[in-house]
């Protein structure tokens, strides 16, 4: 048959004349775009560090300068950590972010599961409502919380607004939405059939969820919790409106940066910013190690 003959129109032009182009430009472009962004991230952190080393290395007398550990303490970081307001701010930040992450998971697990596994009336509407904290300007979330608490009993308003619970509530309102999205994606990735098998083996829905589904979400829960924690750490707008920025009371690290900037202490603001970066990186690294297969606590 002539159909397989090299003279057939199918073989014109000859395949032999084609050579694939080099892959180098492809990787250069892809890598180049990535490197620009990563370099910018590293540059802003390096600039913060450089600023502190150059501007904040002198004039701090935290411990006796004759002591062997004096160089470690008598600097901008030591001064910031010695400030009781900043120490309170660090404590409140750690506590509020951790509580926010835990509360977010408590909501994200059931909501994410229901959205992932079940069809029900109003599901699309619920889906859209859950995105509100993500798309809304943070300041509006705080303002809306403030307005909402005009309609609650006075004792509750006084216990929450401009108090520590307001810090946690404002952080939780936004962080929870991110945790819900993460948990929904986690449940979407878990094969539904394993749950169905558990049902045929004698489980109720709750047993199948608790014994089969939930153990498989460990890494997803860790990611959702970490994301909620990190989001809470960076929250500022709603806190300013709903919890205020009272020193030693509702001051968290993000508000400390704002307060230090507003009184013109750039050095302290940069120092606190770097403390926040260190805290965020530490949480992300610990979460990643804990979530990996080879590491358990």
């Amino acid at each position: 048959m002539s159909t397989s003959s090299p003279t057939h129109p199918l073989f014109e032009p000859s395949a032999e004349s084609h050579r694939a182009r080099s892959d180098v430009p492809f990787f250069l472009i892809m890598g180049g775009i990535g490197i620009v962004y990563v370099a910018l991230l590293i540059a802003i952190l390096a600039a913060d560090g450089f600023y502190l080393v150059r501007e904040g290395g002198e004039g701090h007398e935290i411990v006796d300068s004759a002591a062997w550990y004096a160089p470690l303490c008598n600097n901008a970081l030591g001064a910031a950590l010695a400030d009781p307001h900043i120490r309170y701010s660090i404590r409140l930040t750690l506590v509020s972010c951790t509580l926010t992450a835990i509360l977010s998971l408590w909501v994200a697990v059931p909501v994410g599961y229901l959205l992932s596994r079940h069809e029900f009336f109003g599901k699309n509407l619920l889906d859209a409502i859950l995105d509100i904290p993500i798309v809304l300007p943070p300041l509006v979330v705080g303002l809306s919380l403030l307005i909402l608490f005009q309609y609650v009993p006075a004792w509750l308003r006084e216990a929450v607004v401009y108090q520590v619970p307001a810090v946690i509530l404002a952080q939780w309102m936004v962080s929870c939405a991110f945790a819900v999205r993460t948990m929904r994606a986690t449940f979407d990735q878990i094969d539904k059939r394993r749950e169905q098998v558990a049902l045929t083996l004698g489980c109720s829905r709750a047993q199948a969820f608790g014994r089969v589904v939930l153990p498989e979400t460990k890494r997803g829960m860790l990611t959702a919790g970490t994301l909620a924690w990190a989001r809470a750490l960076g929250e500022f707008g709603p806190l300013l409106v709903f919890a205020g920025a009272t020193r030693g009371k509702t001051e968290v690290l993000s508000t400390t940066v704002f307060l230090e900037l507003s009184i013109g202490d750039l050095e302290a603001a940069v120092t606190v910013s770097l403390i926040m970066v260190a805290a965020a990186v530490a949480v992300l690294v610990v979460a990643r190690l804990w979530g990996s297969r080879n590491f358990t606590l």
């Binding site: 394993r194 098998v197 498989e216």
Partner: peptide, 8 residues
Amino acid sequence: DGALFTTM
């Protein structure tokens, strides 16, 4: 494919 419970 069995759908075995991955954590057990």
